[in-house]
Simulated assay, not measured.
Amino acid sequence: MPEPVPTREQATQLMRQVYGPDRRFSILESRQGWVCQEILPGDEVRRSGVGLGSVVINKHTGVITSHSSLPVRMTGEMFDTAIEAGNPAPGFQVYPKQHRIHLTQVSETENTIEYQVRQTDLDNPLNPELTRRVQITKEPIRHQPTDRLAAEATSWAYDQARRTGTWPQEGTFER
């Protein structure tokens, strides 16, 4: 269970724990959180061609949320405003993980692959599992249905296929 993160040192330690000791982050304090943005080597920044998103550690809860590529000060201000108004943090939660997603391949053709996808709630395992069939078109990559669970399952399976050269028969990841 996450704990409060009142100091910059604790924020740095949490980022190392969650993202690994080799990744470096700039950390900006806001009233309610720590806005963190990865520091990339110069060549990698130029090659990416896009703005970097940020993550924010909630000082009071230790929950980490992911945010768009707005300037870090603006991200901090938006985060503070939401928390101080009693609203949920903008962005989506990345730590602690909330769901376990399991894929089992149902069928595959030259152009498509279909998975049975099962999502389990890690915070409350008594909640009913969410299940659905996800059909992925391989080129260009598309998926049906078009909801977030299907998108995450597609992204994970595609990443596995790129790394290994074959689409996975089965697999599990958490988010």
Rank of each mutant, 00 (worst) to 15 (best):
I83T: 06
R16D: 04
D159R: 04
M1N: 06
I64Q: 02
S66I: 01
T120L: 12
K138Q: 01
N124T: 08
Y115T: 12
F79A: 03
N111P: 03
R100L: 12
I113G: 08
W156L: 03
H67Q: 11
L103Q: 01
R46C: 07
G91W: 00
F92Q: 05
E77K: 15
R73W: 11
V117G: 01
W156P: 01
D159H: 02
N111Y: 11
K138G: 05
S66Y: 10
G20N: 04
Q93Y: 01
F92C: 05
K59Q: 14
T81I: 14
R148E: 09
E152I: 03
L52E: 07
S66T: 00
G86D: 10
L103H: 00
Q98Y: 01
I113A: 10
C36L: 13
V117I: 08
D43P: 00
I136G: 01
S68P: 00
Y158I: 05
Q13G: 15
Y158Q: 07
D43R: 11
E174V: 10
V45T: 11
Q13Y: 14
L14K: 09
V45N: 08
Q105H: 04
P41Q: 09
E152W: 08
P21F: 11
S54P: 06
R31M: 11
Y158R: 04
P145R: 05
D22Y: 12
E38L: 07
E3V: 06
T164D: 06
T12G: 13
E174M: 14
I27V: 06
N58F: 03
V72C: 13
G91M: 07
W34R: 03
R100K: 10
D43L: 08
S68C: 08
T109E: 12
D123Q: 10
T164M: 05
K97E: 12
H99V: 15
I113D: 05
H143C: 15
